[in-house]
């Protein structure tokens, strides 16, 4: 047996190098802890303050006329959000899917690149700017519809990019099999490619809905003012929305309003986190299915 004339222990220089490495590891750990703590603090404070202010009335009654702090609920803010985001989805979903089909299936590579770039850049435009853009067109004519258009502009790039990604995951063999049967391209697209990618398209849309439901800034100039009634659901009128309700309630000094703000925030947070989490889980499973 060979006599050990050397050591494999940590010594000298290596000790210092290992120390640096461990310190950096500890710093990274601390950073992760900080992020989780921040999330925990935000979520827990919203949940604890919000849950205590929740009641059946809060979901089934409308805001008392005259903006009274006491009593009532946010029924029509929920309805308004649903109407605004619903119409936005009706606009953005077909548009986004069509854009994705063009970019991934039909466009020449150079045009596809330009389109992707444009979508990504549009995705980076501040939402308040998009709100102002729609405002310059509709001017003083506020309506839920105008808000929907602004949200749709935000949603289209999200849906288009998510759809494109899943369309690319559909195996080329599936397209070829259909084309080889003499099926035309458009039938192949709608009968083979899109159904195959449907799960991915839906989860991408769900993520976009979660994002749109949390937007406030683009609604400010479009469907915030001139609400004549707190119990309205007509998309041609300016409507209440969850986010705008949180914003206006939070601005009030009256604790009754602040309680409403917390309750509304809690409701919205549950919706947004639950939908985006579910969509992400579904997306991960879907990717695995198509990829593997």
């Amino acid at each position: 047996m060979a006599e050990p004339v050397f050591s494999l222990r940590t010594s000298g220089r290596l000790r210092r190098r290992q120390l640096v490495s461990r310190m950096m590891g500890a710093l990274a750990f601390a950073a992760a802890l900080l992020a989780v703590a921040a999330l925990a603090i935000v979520v827990i404070s919203v949940a604890s303050k919000g849950a205590s202010a929740l009641s059946i009335d809060f979901f089934t009654k409308s805001q008392p006329q005259g903006f009274q702090p006491a009593g009532g609920g946010i029924l029509f803010a929920i309805v308004g959000s649903a109407v605004i985001v619903g119409i936005a989805t009706l606009i953005a979903l077909p548009l986004g899917v069509l854009v994705a089909i063009y970019v991934s299936e039909l466009a020449p590579p150079r045009l596809a690149r330009v389109a992707r770039l444009a979508l990504d850049i549009t995705n980076g435009i501040p939402t308040i700017v998009i709100g102002i853009f729609v405002f310059t067109i509709v001017a003083a004519h506020q309506s839920a519809l105008a808000g929907s258009v602004a949200l749709a502009i935000i949603m289209v790039p999200l849906i288009a990019r998510a759809t494109e990604e899943v369309l690319l995951l559909v195996p080329p063999a599936q397209r070829e099999a259909s084309l080889a049967l003499g099926v035309s391209r458009w039938r192949t697209t709608f009968s083979v490619v899109v159904p195959s990618a449907l799960g991915g398209i839906l989860t991408g849309t769900t993520l976009a809905i979660a994002r749109a439901a949390g937007e406030t800034a683009p609604l400010l100039f479009l469907t915030a003012l001139g609400t004549t009634s707190y119990a309205d659901a007509n998309p041609f009128h300016p409507l209440q929305s969850m986010t705008f309700a949180i914003f206006t309630y939070s601005d009030q000094a009256d604790p009754a309003f602040q309680a409403k703000a917390w309750a509304a925030a809690f409701t919205l947070m549950c919706f947004v986190l639950a939908t985006s989490l579910a969509a992400k889980l579904a997306m991960a499973r879907y990717r695995k299915k198509l990829g593997g």
Binding site: V42, S45, V46, I246, F247, L268, S276
Partner: peptide, 17 residues
Amino acid sequence: ALVEMLAAIPSVILGLW
């Protein structure tokens, strides 16, 4: 997933907090 959840919190809620 937790970090991504933090990214999904609407900004008006962060403002309220």
